[in-house]
Design a binder for these strands. Structure first.
Lengths: 338, 338
DNA sequence: CCTTGGCACTCACCGCGGGCGAGTGCCAGC
DNA sequence: GCTGGCACTCGCCCGCGGTGAGTGCCAAGG
């Protein structure tokens, strides 16, 4: 167990290192923080902290830098989320309120987050499966070609083309549309599969094939991990990553291009509350030198999707967490209003 | 006017520099190319080329590198587009044919282009205004709330929520839908405005307001520069930009995040044929050290959108142009089939 | 037992200077 | 107009020592 003062020393190291990006030594520490002890004492504490794996020195006779484990302790026990100031909150709200549709909301959110945190922002679209059905539409584009349109209460619209093997009569289609909507409207998408299970039975034999085709297309659209969409922004902030970043930035950019990786990344985070994944805690190798701060957001009590930022492990955790939380909160509000 | 041999020297310089990324000297040139003259002669030629502004030396007593003007001459007169090999063409076709819908086509195209050219790829969605109307749908989501869905023959689907001030009856809506489609289906989106101009007159006074609202929303959706969408990929390739790239890469990433900038960039390119914009020829300052190779693509004879790549001015122009042209051709085919 | 000042040691960083060599421009000769 | 020769330039590399921040250890004091 680390003494109170040693924790204090760790906190000071993290803060200084995040600020200066340079290894911090014992003397500098005592000068910049009121620790009330001499550099020699701090040195002892540092040796202990290093022993425990919370800090490390890049090379002998240099200052210390926090390890992933050190940041972890800092985040868990030493740091409080830094709330946004009133003007900041107002700015966030104003900026988000101008949005005209969901794409716009998500787009604005990404830009806002990137700007506030000066890091890479990732925003997931509200998940279909966790949203409620507002409307399901079927359009007949050609005799055997139907377009399926799903509309959620969060404003998300997903469409999909379906090729039926046999022509689908206009009347049958209208019938299916009506039955479908009466069953699922207002229900959660996650419940749709069992709600429509027995629907083909209500139709004539000749139409059953087409009905099944449409329904299975509907179910496919709802398959998790396939229905998720997201938007990223602020990649230009990667250039402020560090000095040696050619090697650091490359895998990060590559990871960010893989939607699958990002979705998994957000998927790994807790459903409620804020999640911070530091350095090697991230499963994806390319993100081993980054930290990911993410949080769920939603219109009501329940989260419908997640958003977050990706930045260097050496980041301002309290500030970043504050920004992420605030943005998530306001996005939720906006979604609830629309 | 430059002699034949001097052009040959310029070509050799461009080729070597693109290959090695290092300033090329007279001796190395004669060794790697069968110029049939001595280094001294090449030196004279180089002096002349420098005098004319086609090449420059980074510092005294270093080799020469091509200037933007030099690349321009190279592209215009010294290089032939390098056709893809048969296996490459087959690979392109196979890769694109697996696509299930337009998003997928565009996504695959971006990845393909990025991979083939090892540069940043930009692909525009088929422009609405240049496409043909397949279907226009109106959905009533709430008494005074209508969703407009536009579907093009290229598979693009655009939707938009409309708030009518007065409730819009289901019958009137169906009427509008039918009239709308009978007028515009199969026509070009660009012609839609005049085709629907007098439509409100066919309706009862009480519905005219709502009809106008819907129509003006439809027209807004078609406004050029607002209806354009695009996808980019391969930003990780920016890390192979050069050695000193922290400063180079930053503005490029920033430019790539601004859809407006990219749309303008593609908009500046010729509608037909391939366009190469080199270095400072690009209006946007952040892209002054990049070249943009773009070309229109379309299902028929006419281009419905553009695609291209963004890379360092020091790029393999013949190869890049070949890849861009080939991909555009196959994307066009795929779109025509669907 | 913890803290502290002192002290010797380490080692990355910086600036300097010389040698190297690719590359150049010029010139005289063919 | 081409060529070989030649002197010159100048960026790059490398080894050098000085500097200083930072460390670990130790003996003394609360």
């Amino acid at each position: 167990m680390l003494s109170e003062r040693r924790l204090e020393v760790l906190r000071a190291i993290v803060q200084d290192y995040v600020g200066t990006e340079e290894p911090v030594g014992s003397k500098a520490l005592t000068e910049r923080h009121r620790l009330g002890v001499s550099p020699a004492t701090v040195r002892n504490d540092m040796a202990a902290l290093e022993e425990e794996g919370y800090i490390a020195q890049p090379h002998t006779s240099a200052g210390r830098i926090p390890t992933d484990k050190g940041y972890r302790l800092f985040v868990d026990r030493l740091a409080a989320v830094k709330p946004m100031t009133a003007p900041e909150r107002r700015a966030i709200q104003n900026f988000l309120e101008g949005a005209v549709d969901l794409d716009d909301v998500v787009g604005r959110t990404v830009r806002l987050l990137a700007q506030l945190t000066r890091q890479v922002a990732v925003v997931q679209y509200p998940s279909l499966t966790r949203s409620t059905v507002r409307h399901v539409e079927l359009l007949s584009l050609a005799p055997a070609r139907v377009m399926l349109v799903l509309i959620t209460d969060t404003g998300r619209v997903e469409q999909r083309m379906i090729d039926c093997h046999a022509p689908f009569g206009e009347a049958s289609l209208a019938d299916l549309r009506a039955r479908l909507n009466s069953r699922v409207a207002g229900r959660r998408f996650a419940d749709v599969p069992q709600l429509v299970e027995d629907l083909p039975e209500a139709f004539d034999v000749e139409d059953r094939g087409s009905v099944s085709t449409v329904l299975s297309a509907l179910l496919e659209t709802l398959v998790e991990e396939r229905e998720e969409r997201l938007m990223i922004g602020g990649t230009a902030n990667l250039t402020r990553f560090g000095h040696d970043f050619p090697l650091t930035i490359r895998p990060v950019l590559e990871a960010l291009e893989e939607q699958v990786v990002l979705l998994r990344l957000l998927g790994e985070a807790k459903d409620s509350g804020m999640t911070v994944r530091i350095g090697h805690e991230n499963a994806h190798e390319g993100l081993n030198s980054t930290s990911v701060v993410s949080v769920g957001y939603g219109s009501g009590g329940e989260a419908v999707a997640k958003l977050g930022v990706v930045g260097p492990t050496r980041m301002d955790y309290p500030g970043t967490m504050g920004a992420v939380r605030a943005v998530a909160r306001y996005v939720g509000q906006i979604l609830a209003e629309s």
